[in-house]
Amino acid sequence: MNEVISVSGLVKTFGRTRALDGLDLTVRPGEVHGFLGPNGAGKSTTIRVLLGLLRADAGSSRLLGGDPWRDATTLHRRLAYVPGDVTLWPNLSGGEVIDLLGRLRGGLDPRRRDELLERFELDPKKKGRAYSKGNRQKVALVAALASDAELLILDEPTSGLDPLMEEVFQECVRDERGSGRTVLLSSHILSEVEALCDRVTIIRKGRTVETGTLSELRHLTRTSIRAELAGPPDGLADLPGVHDPEVKDGTFKCEVETARLDTLLRRLTEIGVRGLTSQPPTLEELFLRHYQDDLNGKGASTGSSGARDAKAGSR
């Protein structure tokens, strides 16, 4: 077991609400792992269980080789956490909070701290109550990034940052990966996850619905095809795996399940292709598909079989 985080069958209920319902999550050493899900899916609850702030009702969870509840204090010295909603002590300055959190964690690198303050353009002299949401988040980010923790747990860390700072954040996370740290990044911002993450776990209603590398996940979804054809597009629409076919002035457009792509391409070349554009699925489409499954009500079955496929594929 050398995984940094390994969670399986995690269950957490609050009264009648089942916040986590058999959730699985595996994070390997040195990877940036994207943790995706709509609001209320259970991302923050999972993180709180991993931090030993909540006690799980069932399932197993290991963090850095220890038990997140029993060994909380010793494990916490090896990780740094940035909450989604950062509140600071109103009469402590930002600089004081950064140093304090660092010391509570067992030390931080003063050079790196100053460098990060500069990169994030953060004034450390302001009092906690005077910072805006984005600046409060920067305080927590600097404190976490300047630590020498082996694992960073970031819960929607950029929701208050402007696009420029978002860019700085992405650079910093790439640096962290370069220096061998493991990052669990929970996020809403799909472009961010796409840009940063090696592997992704998508959860919905407290369950894992997809997990794997981005390319594995892409494999499970559809590619958009737009082809200018030499002949009539006979039979294309009836091919297995082709969705939303559309023919207009000799141009054929459709979405095709990525696994069935070659069947379609073979048929297209038989007809004769004058021009072809193909667009791989974006993470957004991947993500939205699970929403759509929800909306269409057929949902969970395709979702969880997808997850199994992806896991099988990644092993």
Partner: peptide, 10 residues
């Protein structure tokens, strides 16, 4: 919500 980040340290 200030207890949480403090308890997430050592």
């Amino acid at each position: 919500q200030r207890t949480e980040p403090a308890l997430a340290t050592g």
